[in-house]
Nucleic acid binder design. Structure first.
Length: 796
DNA sequence: TGCCCTCGGGG
DNA sequence: GTGTACGAGGGCA
C-alpha cells in the first residue's frame, strides 16, 4: 500500500533495530512506519591496520567502507565502520584511538539525513498491522520505499488532561491519592471532553487505556511536566502499573529532570509555551485563560481539595475537565502546532525534535546533509570547551531626549548577510584568503571557493523571498498565514546558524568564525552611521542591526518619504538590504543602551502600537504599584506630557514615603511560593518568602508547602529584611517600610524621569538634536533580540 | 561582574 | 538514547 504522512516523531526499537516513524495522514489516520535494515555507523580518520583487524573481529562489526573526507582544509582517508547496535556507538567511539567523526548523531536522525527526508513522506510497503500488535496507531506499515512529498499540515489529535489529587501534607513530594483525571480531546474540528474517576487503580488504568485508544499525536496540559505526569507516575509505581502510553507501548522518559518524552507522540506542556510565547505577568492557568479566552477557572479551593471532593464532587469533576479544556484552548489559540509544523518543514525534522531538542539540531539537520553530499567530514560536538566570549553587536547611543518622527531602519538578516557577503565558513577560513575580518581572520573569496554555510544561507534567503512573494499573492487568509509561517521559520533557521557558530560547544564552532561575523556586523553598522552623519543626519540610536534616525522634526509624511529614500539608497550602496521598518512619534531615548520607548505612527498596521524596550513592566516578583507607576510614567512621556510625568512620579513617591492613606496596601504586596522548608539548601533565613511562611505558621494560619505566600516589607534596614505576611482581605497590623517602598519606586521611575531633570531643562518638549556626544558600547553577546513589549498586540 | 540558586506553573 | 535542552531575577562573593 501507499500512504502519505507528516512525521510527528521518529525513534527506533532495540529488539531488531527497526527505525520507527510515526505520523498522521491528511485524512486523519495514525501510522507507524517500520524500516528494517538501516545500520549505525561512524567514521574513523586514518586508522591503522591493527585497529581495523580488531574491529573486523568484533561481533558487533557489520562492514566498512573507504571514504575520502575533507577535514580542516584537506582530504583524508577515512573508514566508515558499520556496527549492529546504535546504543553501542558511544562505547566504540570512546575506545577508538583515532579521531572519530559523526559518532554522536542520534540513530533516527542519521536515518532521516541519509534518506534526505523532509517532514512529510510517502511510504510504500506492506500493511503489517496484524503482526505488529504492540502499536497503538491505526496502521503499521513495513517500509519498502520512502520518498519526500510536498508538505501538508494534517489535523493532529491533541489530548489535554488534568489531575486532581489529595495533598500529602507531611511530604509534598509524595503525592496524595488521585481523585479524578479530566480530559479534552481535539481532532478534526471537534472537541470531546470527559473524566475518569472512581477507584484510584481504575483511574490509572483508565488513563493508559484512554491514551492508547484515542492515540493522540500530542499530549498537553498545564504544568504536566512538573506536576501531573510525575503524580501519575508516582501513584502508578505504588500499584506496579506501567504508564505504557507510547505509540509502541513504551513508557515516558524524564529528560534532564524536566521534560518528558515518549515514543511516537509529542508531549508539549502548554505552560512552557505560554512562557515562551506570551511572557505573561502571571503564568497561572486562571490568569492566562482570562487574558486569552476571557474565561477563567471554576471556583474550587484547591488547598482544601479533599473537603471539596467530599462536599461537591460533581463540581470538582467539572472543574477538572474545565482545566483540561481551557488548557487545550490556550494551546490552540497560541497556534503552537502550526509554529512547530512550519519549523519542522523548514528544518526537515520530526515535530517532536523541533519542539523538544535544542536549536543546534536545526542546523545539524541542514548542514550535515549538505556536508555529507560534498564529502566534508562532520566533527562531533565539543564537550564544553570554555572559550572567551564573542564580542556582540554595536550599540550607538546619544543623549537622552524626546524626539519627533524618528525613522527606524534595520538590516534584513544581519548576521546571515554578513556570512554570505564575506563568505564566512569553516570551509573557507584560510590564512591566505583575500577577505579579512576586522579581527584579522582571513577567508577565501567566493571565486576561489564558495563556503558551504554561505551557500546554504543564500539558498534559504532566496527561498524566503520566494515564500514572501507567494504570501503577497495569496488568495485566502489560510494561504497567507501558511506562507507567513514558513517565511518566519526560515528566518529563525537562518539566525540559528549564527547562534550555533557563536556557541561554545557546537560541532562546527570556531571562535575565530563567530567573532569575525559580529566584527563584520559592527563595522557595517558603524559605516552606515558614518554615512548617515556625513550626509547631515542625526543618528539617535542604533543596536546591532538597526539605526534610528532623526527626521529633523518634520511631519510624519516627510519622515516616511525620507525613510523610504534612505532605505533605498543605503541598500544599494551597501549591497545589503536595509529595511525601512517604522516611524516612531514620539521616540523617547533614555540615553542608555537598550532602553527606549516610542509610539508607532507608520506603517499603518502598526499604528498606535507602543514599543517599550528595556523597561521591565511586568516582573512577577515586583509589587503591583511598581509596574503600574512605570507604565503610567511612560504613558505620560509618550503623550509628551513631561511635566505630568514628573509631577506624577514625584507626587507618588512623596505619598508613599509619608505613608499616605490613599496608597493601597495591596499594591505593595510581594508574593512567592514556598516549598517544604527542608528542600532549601542553605540560609533559609535569608529568603524573605520562607520567613513570611514561618511567621504565617506562628500566627496560626494555614500554610501548605507549595503555597504562594504574600508579604509586606516592614523593615528593610535590617539584614535580612523584616517582612509581615499579608492575608488578602484582612487589615495589616504592621506598618509597611514606607522608605523602602519609596526608594524602590524612585529607583524604577527615576531611571526614566531623571533624564528630564538633568541637562534638558525646560525645553525638552521638542526634540533636541544637537550638542550630544554619542556614547558607544559593545553589547554582550547573545542578548535577546526580541523586544518585550508591554502588550500582547504584536502577538495577535 | 559573574556564578549559583530559586521560582514559576500544578493540587 | 550515536542525545545533555527553560529563562529571568536575586543574593552573594
Amino acid at each position: 500500500m501507499e500512504i502519505e504522512i507528516r512525521i510527528v516523531s521518529a525513534s527506533y526499537r532495540q529488539s531488531d533495530v527497526a527505525v520507527e516513524l510515526f505520523g498522521r495522514t491528511r485524512d486523519g489516520y495514525s501510522v507507524t512506519a517500520l524500516y528494517f535494515g538501516f545500520r549505525p555507523y561512524f567514521d574513523v580518520v586514518d586508522p591503522d591496520e591493527a585497529y581495523l583487524r580488531a574491529i573486523q573481529n568484533d561481533p558487533e562489526f557489520v562492514k566498512m567502507e573507504d571514504k575520502k573526507l575533507w577535514i580542516r582544509g584537506k582530504f583524508e582517508n577515512v573508514k566508515r565502520i558499520y556496527i549492529r547496535s546504535p546504543w553501542k556507538v558511544p562505547d566504540y567511539r570512546g575506545r577508538c584511538p583515532f579521531e572519530v567523526l559523526a559518532a554522536d548523531i542520534p540513530f533516527h536522525h542519521r536515518f532521516i539525513y541519509d534518506f534526505d527526508l523532509g517532514s512529510c513522506v510517502r511510504i510504500t510497503g506492506e500493511d503489517i498491522s496484524d503482526r505488529e500488535t504492540s502499536f497503538t496507531t491505526d496502521m503499521v506499515i513495513r517500509v519498502d520505499k520512502i520518498e519526500n512529498v510536498s508538505d501538508f499540515n494534517p489535523n493532529l489529535k491533541v489530548l489535554s488532561f488534568d489531575v486532581e489529587n489529595e495533598i500529602n501534607r507531611e511530604n509534598i513530594e509524595d503525592y496524595g491519592k488521585i481523585l479524578v483525571i479530566g480530559y479534552s480531546i481535539s481532532f478534526q474540528g471537534k472537541t470531546v471532553t470527559g473524566s475518569i474517576s472512581g477507584d484510584e487503580q481504575n483511574i490509572l488504568h483508565g488513563f493508559v487505556d484512554l491514551i492508547r485508544a484515542e492515540d493522540p499525536d500530542v499530549i498537553t496540559g498545564y504544568n504536566i511536566d512538573g506536576y501531573d505526569i510525575p503524580v501519575i507516575k508516582k501513584r502508578m509505581d505504588r500499584y506496579g502499573i506501567k504508564m505504557e502510553i507510547g505509540r509502541d507501548g513504551s513508557i515516558p522518559r524524564r529528560i534532564m529532570n524536566q521534560f518528558w518524552r515518549v515514543h511516537g507522540r509529542l508531549i508539549s506542556d502548554t505552560w512552557w509555551s505560554v512562557k515562551r510565547i506570551l511572557h505573561p505577568k502571571h503564568e497561572s492557568l486562571d490568569y492566562v485563560a482570562n487574558m486569552l479566552l476571557g474565561e477563567g477557572k471554576d471556583n474550587i479551593d484547591r488547598l482544601k481539595i479533599e473537603e471539596e471532593w467530599k462536599n461537591r464532587r460533581d463540581e470538582v469533576i467539572a472543574y477538572c475537565i474545565k482545566d483540561a479544556d481551557l488548557t487545550l484552548r490556550i494551546f490552540e489559540k497560541m497556534m503552537v502546532l502550526n509554529r512547530l509544523m512550519y519549523m519542522s518543514s523548514v528544518t526537515k525534522l520530526p515535530l517532536d525534535d523541533v519542539a523538544n531538542v535544542g536549536t543546534s539540531n536545526y542546523v545539524d539537520s541542514i548542514l550535515i546533509r549538505a556536508a555529507d553530499r560534498e564529502n566534508i567530514g562532520v566533527p562531533m560536538n565539543q564537550h564544553e570547551i570554555k572559550t572567551e566570549e564573542i564580542q556582540g553587536g554595536y550599540v550607538h547611543t546619544i543623549g537622552a531626549g524626546l524626539y519627533s518622527n524618528v525613522i527606524v531602519l534595520d538590516f534584513k538578516s544581519m548576521y546571515p548577510s554578513m556570512i554570505i557577503k564575506y563568505n564566512v565558513c569553516f570551509t573557507t577560513i584560510d590564512p591566505n584568503g583575500d577577505i579579512e575580518s576586522p579581527t584579522g581572520v582571513r577567508f577565501l573569496s567566493p571565486e576561489k571557493r564558495k563556503g558551504l554555510i554561505p551557500r546554504i544561507l543564500q539558498d534559504l534567503m532566496a527561498d524566503r523571498d520566494d515564500v514572501k512573494r507567494k504570501m503577497k499573492a495569496a488568495k485566502s487568509r489560510e494561504e497567507r498565514e501558511f506562507y507567513d509561517g514558513i517565511q518566519n521559520a526560515i528566518k529563525v533557521l537562518m539566525n540559528t546558524f549564527y547562534g550555533v557558530l557563536a556557541s561554545s560547544f557546537y560541532r562546527f564552532t570556531d571562535h575565530k568564525i563567530g567573532s569575525a561575523i559580529t566584527a563584520f556586523a559592527r563595522e557595517t553598522i558603524k559605516g552606515i552611521i558614518s554615512t548617515l552623519q556625513a550626509a547631515g543626519n542625526t543618528v539617535i540610536y542604533g543596536d546591532t542591526d538597526s539605526v534610528f534616525v532623526a527626521s529633523g522634526g518634520k511631519s510624519t509624511e516627510e519622515a516616511i518619504k525620507r525613510g523610504k529614500d534612505l532605505s533605498e539608497r543605503l541598500s544599494k550602496e551597501q549591497g545589503l538590504t536595509l529595511d525601512f521598518q517604522m516611524v516612531l512619534d514620539p521616540f523617547f531615548s533614555h540615553g542608555a543602551k537598550k532602553r527606549y520607548a516610542g509610539r508607532c505612527v507608520y506603517p499603518e498596521d502598526m499604528k498606535g502600537e507602543i514599543i517599550i524596550k528595556g523597561y521591565e513592566v511586568r516582573r512577577t516578583d515586583s509589587f503591583d504599584l511598581q509596574s503600574q507607576a512605570l507604565s503610567k510614567v511612560i504613558d505620560f512621556i509618550l503623550n509628551r506630557d513631561i511635566d505630568g510625568a514628573i509631577r506624577y512620579a514625584d507626587d507618588l513617591i512623596r505619598k508613599v514615603r509619608s505613608g499616605d492613606p490613599s496608597i493601597d496596601i495591596e499594591s505593595l504586596v510581594i508574593s512567592r511560593t514556598v516549598k517544604e522548608f527542608d528542600s532549601y539548601r542553605a540560609n533559609q533565613e535569608s529568603l524573605a518568602n520562607i520567613r513570611a511562611a514561618k511567621k504565617l505558621i506562628e500566627m496560626g494560619e494555614t500554610f501548605v508547602p507549595g503555597m504562594k505566600v504574600s508579604w509586606i516589607v516592614t523593615n528593610a534596614k535590617r539584614t535580612p529584611q523584616e517582612v509581615e505576611p499579608y492575608i488578602y482581605g484582612r487589615e495589616l497590623s504592621a506598618k509597611p517600610d514606607w522608605d523602602y517602598y519609596a526608594r524602590r519606586l524612585s529607583e524604577t521611575l527615576g531611571r526614566v524621569i531623571d533624564v528630564f531633570r538633568s541637562d534638558l531643562g525646560q525645553e525638552h518638549k521638542t526634540a533636541r538634536l544637537d550638542s550630544f556626544e554619542p556614547s558607544t558600547d559593545e553589547k554582550k553577546p547573545k542578548e535577546k533580540e526580541t523586544p518585550k513589549n508591554s502588550t500582547l498586540d504584536s502577538f495577535f
